[in-house]
Structures are given as structure tokens and as C-alpha cells.
């Protein structure tokens, strides 16, 4: 079965006065129906730009998708006109943004905003749309959905607003849901609730979900597969259990090592150095300046994506050697 969404070699650049920001460089991944894919990386590594590229919402200027394909079924979304994309957005691919405080319009009630998103894509009466909106509010576990329908966003807490955002995104049964840091602005207890909700809805609707986050901890409980990004590129991809049990890329290893864990008293293992700028990228591997395992080759050549076993991908010379040493098949 071919995947629901196929991203091949997606490359998005931002042409700014300071120079060309290579926000997304040759990114490829597949998303199956009924699967949650986590896109993990630190701030500025191009996660949101990836999401906006898939939605056809890259701010232009300064941004432009300069290469690659985004295949939804057999259509390449990057070749569609703006008009065609409008029919797809919110209908087949929907998105939830990070900031629950600013992504709802303060002058309309939450109910009206959901009704609006239903009416955008469905030929139904206002009355039916209203019913659907109440149903959606109920679906995202908002207590007393009929009562809440007429509330303005400022009356709701952050967690509730994020649920309303999710309700809006689900209005037309999308095939793909992109959630860009949906819980970053929320408290831990609320974060747990919203993530649980996303997990349950994913199962119920059989959607493919792309969950974007900078927090590996969030990923463990909800994702099926993980793509780790660093400086605009994919550096590792693996099923969630493998990423945590045996991370291959030194960056993934560093990330996991630098998270405080219960019972460990010692100093945290830190990744030295700073996150690189995406403007003047050095030739070789972009992680090389911070990497303990870097070899001369790493500073000159960009490592390719090597497929390991049947489900893992890593872009690192040292990891390739290690894996080959263990007698596993490496396919570049």
C-alpha cells in the first residue's frame, strides 16, 4: 500500500536581506494513514517551515519552496494552483498552530469560528453546520458544548482554546492533521490531556498525524515514528521504540543524554556549542562542530541518508560505521 502522504526532497529557502536561510533542505518522509509521525528538533531547525510548506502557506516573500514533491495520493501539492490548494487546506490537510492565544479570532465566538470552518468546505445549511460544531466541541471533550458555543475565545483557558483549534481542524474529517507544537504553551497536566485527546482522535478518525515538537518527552507516549531534524535536515528517522532504545545519530544521542532522568544524580551530559545559523552553513555535516564523534570526513562531506534495516534512516558517517561494525545492512 502506498503511503498517504509522501514528502520527497522538500527544500524551502527564505531569501532575506542577511542571506538565504536554508530552512528546509532535502527533507523526505512518508506518512501512513492511521499513523502518528513526530517531527522533533530544536528551535529554528525548520519544523514550522516544513509544516507551512506542506500546507502551501510559506510566507512569500521571503520564503519559497525551491524543490521537491509533496504527494497526497497521486497529486503533487506543490504543483497545484492557490485555488486548488484552498480546496485541500482544511479539507484534506488541516493544521493546528502553536499559540492558542493568538490563533483564534477574538471578535467571534468559538462556535461561529467552527461553523465557519465547516461551511468553507461543506455544502450544508448553517443549521447543520451548527449541529456539527456542537458535535465537534463535544468530541474534543469540552464540557457543556452547547453553552460554550457562544463564548468568546478570551473566556476560555489555554487548554480549552487549543481544543477548539483541534475541533476546527477536524471539522471536515481531514486525512492529514499537522499539529505544530500544539501543547508547548500549555501546562503539564493540560498538555497530557491534549496529547491524549489527539491520540484518541487519531485512532477514531484514522488520520495521519504529523506532530511537531521540540520535546522528545512528549513523543514517547504518542508517536509511532520519529523524524529528528537538525539545521533544516533530517538526521535520523526510526520507529519510536528504537529512537529511545538505541539512538544512532550523535545528535539524537546527545538530546536524550541531556534530558534529566529520574535517579541520575550526576551532571547532565551536555551538547557543547550553539545551534548553527541556517545562513552560512559549513560544507560537511551541520552537526560536526558540536559532535564528539566527528571525523575529518564529517567536516568536508555531507553524509547521505543511509537506510538501516527496513525502518531506520540515519545521516551520519560515524553511525554508519558503527552499524556496519555490528554487521547490520547499511544501504545508502
Amino acid at each position: 500500500m502506498s503511503p498517504l502522504l509522501q514528502v520527497c526532497d522538500l527544500t524551502t529557502h527564505l531569501f532575506t536581506v542577511e542571506g538565504v536561510v536554508k530552512a528546509v533542505e532535502g527533507l523526505s518522509f512518508d506518512l501512513d494513514a492511521d499513523e502518528t509521525l513526530a517531527l522533533v528538533g530544536e528551535s529554528g531547525c525548520g519544523k514550522s517551515m516544513t509544516a507551512l510548506s506542506l500546507m502551501g502557506l510559506v510566507p512569500d516573500p521571503p520564503g519559497r519552496i525551491v524543490g521537491g514533491q509533496v504527494l497526497l495520493g497521486d497529486r503533487d501539492l506543490l504543483q497545484l494552483s492557490e485555488h486548488e490548494m484552498q480546496k485541500i487546506r482544511g479539507n484534506e490537510i488541516a493544521m493546528v498552530f502553536q499559540e492558542p492565544m493568538t490563533s483564534l479570532n477574538p471578535v467571534f465566538t468559538v462556535g461561529d469560528q467552527i461553523v465557519e470552518s465547516v461551511l468553507t468546505h461543506r455544502q450544508v445549511s448553517r443549521r447543520q453546520a451548527r449541529e456539527r460544531a456542537v458535535e465537534l466541541l463535544d468530541l474534543v471533550r469540552i464540557p457543556d458544548p452547547r453553552g460554550r458555543f457562544d463564548d468568546y475565545p478570551h473566556r476560555l483557558s489555554g487548554g480549552m482554546r487549543q481544543r477548539v483549534m483541534i475541533a476546527m481542524a477536524l471539522a471536515c474529517d481531514p486525512d492529514v492533521l499537522i499539529a505544530d507544537e500544539p501543547t508547548t504553551a500549555l501546562d503539564v497536566t493540560i498538555q497530557a490531556q491534549v496529547l491524549d485527546l489527539l491520540g484518541e482522535l487519531q485512532g477514531e478518525f484514522g488520520m495521519g498525524v504529523i506532530l511537531i515538537t521540540h520535546d522528545l518527552g512528549v513523543v514517547a507516549g504518542i508517536a509511532d515514528r520519529v523524524v529528528v531534524m537538525y539545521a533544516g535536515r533530517k538526521v535520523e528517522e526510526a520507529p519510536v521504540d528504537d529512537i529511545f532504545a538505541s539512538p544512532l545519530h550523535p545528535y539524537t544521542q546527545g538530546l536524550l543524554g541531556s534530558m534529566p532522568r529520574p535517579g541520575l544524580e550526576e551532571r547532565l551530559r551536555e551538547i557543547p556549542g550553539v545551534i548553527p545559523s541556517l545562513i552560512d552553513m559549513t560544507p560537511g555535516c551541520s552537526f560536526a562542530p558540536r559532535c564528539a564523534k566527528a571525523m575529518a570526513r564529517c567536516r568536508e562531506e555531507q553524509p547521505d541518508h543511509a537506510t538501516i534495516g527496513d525502518a531506520r534512516v540515519v545521516a551520519c558517517f560515524a553511525a554508519e560505521e558503527e552499524v556496519a561494525g555490528r554487521g547490520l545492512a547499511v544501504d545508502t
Binding site: 464540557p143 483557558s157 487548554g159 480549552m160 503539564v188 497536566t189 493540560i190 498538555q191 497530557a192 490531556q193 491524549d196 520535546d215 522528545l216 518527552g217 512528549v218 514517547a220 507516549g221 504518542i222 519510536v240 521504540d241 529511545f244 536524550l256 534530558m259 532522568r261
Partner: peptide, 21 residues
């Protein structure tokens, strides 16, 4: 509610969800 770094524990552990916000 604290995220744990082990997918198996994370999937299995029972969450106590507070009733309201």
C-alpha cells in the same frame, strides 16, 4: 503528567486526569 522517556512505560502507564481546568 510528566513525560517519560520510555515509550513502553509512556503508553502503558495510567494517567490520572484532573476533572477540570
Amino acid at each position: 503528567a510528566v513525560p517519560v522517556l520510555d515509550p513502553k512505560i509512556a503508553r502503558e502507564r495510567k494517567k490520572i486526569i484532573p476533572r477540570d481546568e
